[in-house]
Amino acid sequence: MPKQTILGRVAQLARADVNALLDQAEDPRKMLDHLIREYTGNIAEAEETVAATVGNLRLMEEDHREDVDSAREWGQKALAASRKADELRAGGAGPGADRFDALAKVALGRQLQAEQEARTAEPTIASQTVVVDRLKAGLDRMRVKLSQLTSKRDELVARAASTQAQNRMMDAVRNIGVLDPASELSRFEDKVRREEARVVGKQELAASSLDAQFEELESLGAGAEIEARLAALKAG
């Protein structure tokens, strides 16, 4: 994937307004689940791209260090060959001196080539370093956004569960109001009291009937006493 493409996607996803997306969604939870899957996939894809870009940058940096080290080593070899040529020339060994001067020139040529390669790589390394920094920053923002999405989804699920529990509780309370056990108990108590009153009435009725019988018995007793006394008077 081209770097500009992944950079653009990273920037676009990092700037996404979660609340605005939720406001437009018919089912916020499904929208969040979709966004989390999309972010997770894009983060994994971006991580692979960033890893490859970082790997290429490290290779270029390593090549650059090798070119710099190589330029330094060839410079040291050129200096050593030049000094040896001067030493031989001072001792009268001209042909040997010329050979070491030739070696010094070869070493200097290699030094120039290594320095040129190092200089050529430096702008590319600098630009790639900027790209890598931007990709890493974008990835960090995407990870933060993913964390926000996950927290938002978990909060929404918890709130939905709480709302459902409250609705079930309110339905139960409403059903209790329709079939109030207290009202049933009150009606049963009224029925018991009516039965108790009926028993009391029967008892009073029975008591009054018994009193009447005793009064009748007493009346009969008084009449017999009168008849007995009348008979005694006549006999006397």
Rank of each mutant, 00 (worst) to 15 (best):
A160G: 08
L57M: 09
S186Q: 14
D69R: 11
A104G: 14
D27C: 04
A212L: 12
A90E: 09
K30F: 03
L57H: 09
P181R: 03
S127F: 07
A78C: 03
A14V: 02
A207C: 02
G223T: 09
L217N: 11
V132P: 02
R141E: 07
Q116R: 10
L88T: 04
L22G: 05
E216N: 11
I226Q: 13
R134A: 07
A161T: 11
A104I: 02
V18L: 15
E195R: 14
R58F: 05
L59Y: 03
S162L: 06
P28N: 01
V18S: 07
R89N: 05
D33R: 08
K191E: 14
Q203M: 14
K30Y: 01
L79G: 04
E61L: 06
I6N: 08
M31H: 11
E189Q: 11
D211R: 10
A137G: 07
V199D: 09
L205C: 04
W74V: 00
A90D: 07
G96S: 04
V18F: 04
A207H: 09
A235T: 07
E38R: 10
R65C: 00
L230P: 01
A207L: 10
A160C: 03
D171H: 08
E115G: 07
E87M: 04
A20V: 07
V131H: 07
E61F: 01
R15Y: 02
A93N: 12
R174K: 14
A51R: 12
P123R: 04
R37V: 10
E61A: 09
D67S: 14
